[in-house]
C-alpha cells in the first residue's frame, strides 16, 4: 500500500507529531517502502491461527490492595516543564 502526503499528515496528526512539510514526501516514501516489506505477511493464510500478544503463556498476577506510595510530588515534579501550586500547566484546555 502506498502512502501519500495526506496519509502522512493524517497519521502524524493522530500521533501528534509535527512534521516539516518539506519532509512529508520523504516520510511518505519511507513508510510506503516499510509497508511493502510488511505486506509480505499477506501471503500467508493465518485464518486458523490465534493471535499471540505475549511470548509466554503467563497470566496476570494480582497485587494486594495496599497503599505503598507516599507523596513524592516534589521529587516527581522536579523535571516538569511548568508547574504551579502543584499542578502541571498546559495551554488552556477547551472542551
Amino acid at each position: 500500500m502506498a502512502l501519500n502526503q495526506d496519509d502522512v499528515a493524517k497519521v502524524a496528526h493522530l500521533a501528534r507529531l509535527a512534521i516539516d512539510s518539506s519532509n512529508t514526501q520523504a516520510y511518505a516514501d519511507d513508510l510506503t517502502s516499510i509497508l511493502a516489506l510488511v505486506d509480505q505477511m499477506q501471503t500467508v493464510d493465518t485464518q486458523q491461527v490465534d493471535p499471540m500478544s505475549h511470548p509466554l503463556d503467563a497470566t496476570q498476577r494480582l497485587r494486594p490492595d495496599e497503599v505503598t506510595e507516599a507523596d513524592q510530588r516534589n521529587l516527581l515534579q522536579q523535571g516538569a516543564p511548568a508547574v504551579e501550586q502543584g499542578l502541571f500547566l498546559v495551554p488552556k484546555v477547551i472542551e
Binding site: 496519509d7 502524524a12 493522530l14 501528534r16 507529531l17 509497508l35 495551554p91
Partner: peptide
C-alpha cells in the same frame, strides 16, 4: 495551544527513525 504543545514538543524531541516507527505503528 494544546495541539501545538503536543506536536512541536514531540516533533522536536524525537528523531527521524523514532517518528517513522511511531507513524508506522499508529498506521
Amino acid at each position: 495551544d494544546l495541539e501545538d504543545l503536543y506536536k512541536r514538543s514531540r516533533g522536536e524531541g524525537f528523531g527521524a527513525e523514532v517518528k517513522r516507527r511511531i507513524m508506522i505503528g499508529t498506521y
